[in-house]
Design a protein around this nucleic acid. Structure first.
Lengths: 341, 341
DNA sequence: TATTGCTGTGCAATCGTTTGCGCATCAATC
DNA sequence: GATTGATGCGCAAACGATTGCACAGCAATA
């Protein structure tokens, strides 16, 4: 069952010419006679010859393979992102070596090392949410494999990264709520160590202070993103004397847990309390309680952008200490009007 | 920015020994002196030498890479499946070259050809729903790259495949409904050309006739899996004089569209009409109208099984005309009791 | 002393392809 | 008739690692 691919050597043998002649004939080298070219091409077709990409890339010290490491493809955001990456990759004749970290830094490292051994030409990664040391990644970059971070990117400036401005989206979101008359705006944020959480919190504070509202930390809760964590957070918000009239959830998954609990507590979702969120999952319109508003982060576009950025990084045309920081825009998507209930 | 990996050649040069000595020392060859081994290993560590997997596999005419082609990773079924594939791959020291067909046979073929050029050691594929010619895949297999189909598999017996018994699941499902007193059981099936659809239909017919019920084709509709197709099908069912008391949907996505429409028509979901389905999406419990019952097809397990099967196929220990047909079990998962509404 | 066997190492081929260089052959030019 | 230039093709090295074979040096044996 071992692969039996024809080689230029066999073609050369059958045609009684040298290997180099076959190679050049197939590449339409000007110095090869036209009859020879035709004989070679004819036989190549007949034998279903296909160049051995492995051999070529081995010689050229490239692989035309990009490693892609994502936390979990079960999240719609990442499954969309990889589609964008793949689409762009196909366009540039690259293929995708795929791995998930499942938000475990140890697995993440193992996957990366394996990709390094495979000699991928570059790596696109969205960090596991528990990763805080990326020094080994910098080493890999120094060893000659460029890395582009996307969405879950490190704070530091000396990396290539593609991300969207959650800080700004959050301000937009609060402003939207404000313009609809909501004043008691709560937030169920993610773990404090995440950049994503920090951006949300800062945007939240900034927006409130722009509106001359004081930041009431009773309205600010966090969740570890588990159902239990979110339920606890929501419970606290609901127990407040002067409870919130609007709740911003970390993302649509948190939103679903929060609204599920609130509903069970007799809250009329989006009537008694307005719920808004991030991610804009496609499943949203089928859920029992869609958010009034969700921030669309265009994972597909981020994926495409990440691929284009790594290609530029691989070309290495940039200055030695230049790093790409690509910001992709977001949009507020309104759902509330046509939801099922 | 080109990769600069140390090679055994450089180690040999620095140590004034031959390349072969370095290679053997690193592999603990018995004929290499102990001091030499230590000197070599020491320097290798120091230089952060890592064997060039590309070179090794090139020489061995292998890649340790498995191509995985899925219709669309946005479907939870496939995103779970690839996790299973990846987990098993990691265990056996294989990596995953990934591609989506987006249910387009032309793209599917392009992806496969590209993987062939990359000389993957094997291919795991779940067919695009529009694919009907797999002859070119048989050719690739003949050329020496084993192929394992999973979930969306061809009918023919002369292929390796991993799948679950939807025929049997459907019978179980109808029996479950029957035991709950439902007698007017409708089905919204998928496109007739899909094996998956045929199995559902046959199971449906078989179950009904086992219960001495006649198959009423007024209760049988199909959808092209678009929202419109499903809505039309549901509309027809609702317009019947003696309408169904239960509806079996092709999968949870169809189920969501069907129930969304039925709800808008004033049907009390799972009270007026019972809805059951296939896939058992994790999102189900957050949706407005979860199915009473959904068939769990264990995509993760199917993925693992597919990986194990391709590894066996690559070993080629089987008889020349033997093909693996691995059936993985399904389960009926009950939701109705704790759904939100 | 000659043979045998062991230890430690190097040579060179191999995988498939590309490519710089060189060598013919032939026609055209001076 | 010698030089030049174009044409057509082959040789061999290179990419990184593995491995069968050979060989030198040395000790033990006959």
């Amino acid at each position: 069952m071992s692969a039996n691919h024809p080689t230029i050597k066999e073609i050369a043998l059958r045609l009684n010419v040298s290997i180099s002649t076959v190679s050049r004939a197939l590449h339409d080298h000007p110095r090869i006679g036209i009859k020879t070219k035709e004989r070679v091409k004819e036989l190549a077709r007949e034998m279903k010859y296909e160049p051995n990409a492995q051999a070529i890339f081995f010689k050229q010290q490239k692989t035309a393979v990009i490693g892609v490491v994502l936390p979990s493809i079960k999240e719609e955001f990442f499954s969309q992102a990889i589609s964008g990456i793949e689409a762009a990759a196909t366009q540039y004749d690259y293929t995708i070596l795929f791995g998930q970290s499942h938000d475990d830094p140890a697995i993440e490292k193992r996957v990366i090392e394996s990709m390094k051994r495979q000699r991928v030409d570059g790596i696109i990664i969205s960090l596991s949410k528990n990763t805080n040391k990326i020094s080994y990644l910098k080493e890999i970059e120094t060893a000659g494999i460029p890395i582009v971070f996307f969405d879950r990117v490190p704070d530091q400036p000396d990396v290539h990264k593609v991300y969207c401005d959650i800080y700004k989206s959050t301000i937009d979101m609060v402003n939207w709520l404000y313009s609809r008359g909501y004043r008691k705006i709560a937030m169920i944020n993610g773990p404090a160590n995440l950049t994503a959480s920090r951006e949300r919190l800062e945007g939240y504070k900034q927006a409130l202070s722009q509106k001359k509202m004081k930041v009431d930390m009773r309205y600010f809760e966090t969740t570890d993103l588990t159902k239990e964590g979110t339920t606890t957070a929501m419970k606290k918000l609901l127990s407040l004397k002067n409870g919130p009239t609007a709740v911003i959830s970390f993302n649509d998954y948190v939103h679903m847990d929060a609204t599920q609990y609130a509903h069970m507590q007799g809250i009329n979702i989006n009537k008694d309390i307005a719920f808004v969120s991030y991610s804009n999952l496609s499943i949203t319109d089928y859920t029992a309680f869609p958010p009034l508003l969700s921030v669309e982060q265009y994972p597909y576009g981020q994926g495409e952008q990440a691929m284009e950025t790594i290609i530029r990084a691989m070309k290495g045309e940039h200055e030695k200490d230049f790093f790409y920081h690509e910001e992709v825009p977001t949009t507020l998507v309104i759902h509330g009007t046509n939801h099922i209930r």
